[in-house]
Write a protein that binds this DNA or RNA. Structure first.
Lengths: 218, 218, 218, 218
DNA sequence: AATGAATGAGAATTCATTCAT
DNA sequence: TATGAATGAATTCTCATTCAT
C-alpha cells in the first residue's frame, strides 16, 4: 500500500518529475499545434500525435481541452509576471530606463508570438479565460505601470500625465503592434527589433519633463 | 417566364430591398450572437433564433458560417475604409488635425467594439479571413498613414521619424487599447472618450517639430 | 365561376394542351438532369433550372420528386409497352422475324439509354417503383414472350425449350448488355448496332428446330 | 512509447484481428441495410444500429459513407475476381466445361444477390464507383472471356464468332438475369438453379462447331 | 500510467416541400 | 398558374471525453 504524499520519498519525487516532464511535453505540443491551427481547429488528437502520446494520456494531466489552454496561459504568465523592477535603479536616467524596459517587454512579447497567436483569439472569445488572464496578468501589470508612472510624476521626472491612461497606452501600443503583426503585417515582422527605440523616440518627449529628457540611449 | 434582371422593374426593386433587409437582419443577429458567444461557440441555430428565422433561411443569403463572418467583415470594412482625409486641411495646425483624426478613429473603432469582439478572434485564427482583412483594410490604412506622415516630415512639420514604424505604432496603440478593453479593462471601457486627447498629448511632442507644436486643442 | 370539366370547352382544351406541354417540358428536363447526375444527386431545383421554371411550378404538375420519376417511367412504358406484334407475320421465317424483333428491341432500349441510366438505379432501390415497373412492363412483356415462344414450340418451329426461362434469358441478355454499357463498357457503346445480329447468330441455333433454321438475314 | 509496427507482436496481432472483425461486422450490417433500403435511403445510423455499435465507430473504420460502399465493392471483387480457370482442363469437352463455368458463375452471382442489390444502383449512379468497378472487375473479366473464346475459335472448337461481342453477351445474359430477378421476377428467384443448363442449351448450339457439340451434361 | 477504440452529443448543411404574393 | 423565399426535418460527420485493458 503506497504511503500518503511524502515529498521526501525519492520515488515520489521521481514520479513528480516524470509527471512534470510529461506536462511540459504536452504543453509544448499544444503550443505548436494551437499556434499553427488555432485552438478550435486543433484537436486533442493533433496535440497527442505531436507529443507522441495517446489521446487519453492528455486527460491524465489536463481535465479537458480548455484546461490545456489554461496551462499555456500559466506558462505565459510565468514569463509575463516577472517584469524587471520598474523602480528606477539609482542614477539611471528615465530615458535609459524606459528604453531598457521597452526592449525587455518587446523581447518577451515577441518571443511568445506563437503562443499569443494561439491564445489571444480564445482569450478574446472565452470569458472565463479572459477574466483569468486579466486578473492574473493585465491588472497587476497595469497597477505596476500606473504606480511607476505616478512615481515619476511625483518625482518631477515625468510630465503631469494621467497615469492610468498612459500606462494603458503604453501597454496597448506594444500589444497592438503585436496584434498588427499577427494580422499579417510583414513590416513589423521584419523590423520588430526596432520597435523599442522607435517607441521610445516617439513617447519620451511627451512623457518626460524637459529637464529629464537628456537621453543616453544607444 | 421570368424576365431578365431589370433594375427598373418595381417588383424586382422591392424584392431586392427585402433581400437586403433580410441580409441586414441576419448580420445584425450574427453580430450580437458572435459578440456574446464567440464565432466558434455560436451556432447557426443561435443566429437564426436571434434573427427570428429558420436555420435554412440563413443559407439563402450566406453560403456558409464563414461567409457570414465575411459579411460582418465587409460591414466593418465599409466603416473603416472611409478615413476622413488625412491631408492637412489648409490652415489647420498639425496638432489640431491630429487630435481630430484620433477622435474620429477612436469613435469609429469603439462604435464597432461589438463587431470587433465578434471578428477579431476569428481574424487572428483564420488565415483566409486574416489575409482578406489585411489586404482590404490594414494595408491600405498603413499606406495612407505612412504617406501622411512622410508628407509632414517633408514639410518640416514632423520630426524625421520613420514613417512606417510610426504609422504602425499609431494604429497599434489604438488597436491595442481596443484589445485591452476587449480583454476586460474597465478603466478603458469607462474612459475611452479621453483616449484621443491623452494619446495626442503623449505623442505630439515626439511627433512634431518644435515650431509646429503650437497646440490649439481642447 | 368556371364550369365543370367539359372536354369540348375550347378554353379548357387549350389549357389542357398547355398543361401537357409543361409536363413534357418538365419531364424532358428531369430526363436530362437525372441522367447526368442520377436521381438522388439531382435536386428539384436542378430540374426547375433546366426547365427554365420555378421550383414550385413543378409541384403543380407532380406531387413530389418520386412522382417525377413515375412520370419518366410512364414515358418509358409508353415506348416499351408497344412491342411490335410478336406473332409471326404470315410467311416470315422464324429467323427473320427474330432478327427484326431484336433489332427493334435494341433500338428501343438504346434510344432510351439516358432515361434508363436515370431510372434503373432508383428502380432497383425503390420497392414501390420496382413493383410498378415490374407489373406494368416486365410481367406483361415476359408473358408475351413466353406465349410467343410457346407458340413456336407448339408449331414445331422452336426446339422444346422452357418458354419461361428462354423468354427471360432473351430479355435478360438485352437488359444485361445495356447494363454493361451503362457500367462503362466502351466496346458495347461503340458497337451496339451489331448486337441484334450477334445475338441472333448466337441464339437461333439453340432456339429453332433444324428445319426452321434456314436463315435469311442480312 | 508505442512500439513500431511489429506483426509478430501478439498484442498487435490480436488488435488487428479485432479491427478486422469490426470491419466485417460493419460491412455485414451495411450489406443488410443497403440491400433492404438502398444506399441513399439508408443512413449511417441505420448501419450502426444494425451492427449494434455507435454511429461514430463506423468512422473509425471507414472514411465516409461512400467509403463503406467501396468496402462492399472490394468484398464483391474478392468474390468475382477469382474466376476458375477458363482454360479447358485437358480432355473436358467444351460443352461440359461451359456448363461447369456457367454453374460456377451463376452460383457466385446469386450468392451475392443481396450485395448486388445494395451496390448495383449506386454503381450505376456514381461515376467514381462505376469506373472503379469497371476497371477492377468488368474489364479484366471481359478480357479473360474474350481470350477464352478466341482460343476456342482458333482451336476449331467454337464457331467463328466475334469474341468481344460474344463474351459480352454471355456476361450480359447472366447479369441481365440477375437484374431481372432484382427487379422482382419471381420465376427467376424460384428457378435460378436451372439457369446454367437452360443457358447452356440455348447457347451451345450457336457457340460450338458441330463436331464439338457432343454434350455430356446432366 | 498509458492506450486508443468506442461513444454520442452536437453542428453545419442540404433540399423537398409549402405557401403568400 | 407561376414564383421563389422560407421552412425545418433529416443526415453526415467531427471530436472531446470515457474507460476497459
Amino acid at each position: 500500500m503506497p504511503v500518503a504524499n511524502d515529498p521526501t520519498d525519492p520515488i515520489q519525487a521521481i514520479q513528480a518529475q516524470l509527471a512534470a516532464a510529461r506536462r511540459t511535453q504536452i504543453l509544448d505540443a499544444a503550443t505548436r499545434v494551437f499556434a499553427s491551427k488555432g485552438f478550435n481547429r486543433a484537436t486533442i488528437r493533433d496535440v497527442a500525435r505531436d507529443a507522441g502520446i495517446a489521446d487519453g494520456t492528455i486527460y491524465n494531466y489536463f481535465a479537458n481541452k480548455t484546461d490545456l489552454l489554461f496551462g499555456l496561459l500559466d506558462r505565459l504568465n510565468d514569463t509575463e509576471r516577472r517584469p524587471t523592477s520598474l523602480a528606477l535603479a539609482g542614477d539611471a536616467s528615465v530615458a535609459g530606463f524606459f528604453r531598457a524596459y521597452l526592449r525587455e517587454r518587446v523581447e518577451a512579447l515577441w518571443s511568445n508570438a506563437d503562443l499569443l497567436r494561439a491564445i489571444l483569439p480564445e482569450l478574446l472569445a472565452n470569458p472565463d479565460l479572459r477574466a483569468r488572464y486579466f486578473d492574473e496578468v493585465i491588472a497587476p501589470t497595469m497597477a505596476l505601470g500606473e504606480g511607476a508612472i505616478q512615481a515619476l510624476v511625483s518625482a518631477g521626472q515625468a510630465r503631469d500625465v494621467d497615469a492610468a491612461l498612459t500606462a494603458r497606452t503604453l501597454a496597448g501600443a506594444l500589444l497592438g503592434l503585436m496584434v498588427l503583426q499577427l494580422l499579417g503585417d510583414q513590416t513589423l515582422a521584419a523590423r520588430w527589433r526596432e520597435i523599442p527605440d522607435a517607441l521610445a523616440d516617439l513617447l519620451l518627449p511627451g512623457l518626460t519633463t524637459p529637464d529629464a529628457t537628456r537621453d543616453d540611449a544607444s
